[in-house]
Amino acid sequence: MSTSRGTPPSISQTLPGFLPGDLGWHLGMILRGHQLAVAQSVAPVPGQVRGYQLLSTVVHRDPANQQALGSHLGIDRTVLTYLIDDLVEAQLVERIAAPSDRRARKIIATARGEKLLAELEVKVNAAEQELLTGLSDTQSAQLAGLISTLSANIHNAQPGANPCEAMDLLG
């Protein structure tokens, strides 16, 4: 952040109620709490949180091909291939020829994958609600809106960013 003249902000221009670095600490704590709560909920999925995110993305966002899936999730294509292999072996997803380019592969959920995702979404929702205990419904809705806006802005500015790296660094 800089002022209109391009000079760095002073300590008096920091985020209200924050010292420099506080935002990162708070986000790290939230991420850690979410990671622990959700990891238990999605344990049946190969790759746990990454596998769950992949399955959810395939079902709810319908990416055009494997490359678009990896780009959306910010997962390296080598890691993505192994993760998809594990999900295929578990009969949760399958690879088909992409309708737009038969040389590319599209990942789709199997009936078993869709059923498991529906069951896990109930558990993930409960874990996330538990994480938000102490916030009113209005505060939860505000937080969800703000986080969505901020993450979309960051994703648009850094489309190749890997959100899984942040999770890995916590472990």
Rank of each mutant, 00 (worst) to 15 (best):
L73G: 04
S71C: 00
V88Y: 00
A97D: 13
L135E: 06
A111I: 06
L120Q: 12
S10H: 08
S140T: 13
D137Y: 04
P20T: 12
D137W: 04
Q48A: 14
D76R: 02
V124I: 11
A141Q: 14
V124T: 15
E119K: 13
V88A: 05
L69T: 08
G21L: 06
G113E: 06
S151F: 05
M167R: 04
M29C: 11
L170S: 03
R61L: 14
H60N: 15
G113K: 03
S12T: 15
P16G: 07
L54I: 06
S140A: 15
Q67A: 07
L73W: 01
G28Q: 09
Q91S: 11
E94V: 07
L135I: 10
A43Y: 09
I96H: 07
G160S: 07
C164D: 03
V45D: 03
V49Y: 01
D137R: 14
G21I: 09
K115G: 04
G17D: 07
N162E: 02
G21Y: 05
A144F: 04
H60T: 13
I96K: 11
L80M: 10
A90Q: 13
T149F: 10
R32E: 14
I154F: 05
A64Y: 06
G70V: 07
L117C: 11
L69Y: 02
I11N: 03
R32F: 07
D86T: 09
A127M: 14
L55C: 08
Y52H: 12
L80I: 11
L83R: 02
A104W: 01
A90S: 14
G6M: 08
L23A: 14
G145N: 13
A166G: 03
G74D: 01
P163F: 02
Q35W: 03
V79Y: 01
M29G: 13
K123Q: 15
V45C: 12
A97H: 12
L87Q: 12
I154Q: 04
V93Y: 09
A141W: 01
L54F: 00
T110R: 08
G24V: 03
G70C: 01
S71F: 03
G47H: 06
S41E: 13
R61C: 04
I154V: 11
P99I: 00
V38H: 02
T78A: 00
A109S: 15
E121C: 09
N153D: 09
G33S: 09
H26Y: 10
K115C: 11
V45Q: 04
H34V: 12
G145Y: 01
T133R: 15
H34S: 09
E119V: 10
H60S: 12
Q53D: 09
L131E: 11
R102N: 01
N65I: 03
M1N: 06
Q66D: 00
I107M: 07
V79G: 00
L80N: 01
P9K: 11
I96Y: 00
L15W: 06
I84Y: 02
A157K: 04
Y52C: 07
A161D: 00
P46K: 01
S2P: 09
L150A: 14
S56N: 15
V38W: 02
G51L: 03
R61E: 15
D62Q: 14
N162D: 10
L170K: 03
L135N: 12
M1Y: 08
Q158H: 05
A90I: 13
G160Y: 00
L83E: 11
L116N: 05
M167V: 04
H26Q: 10
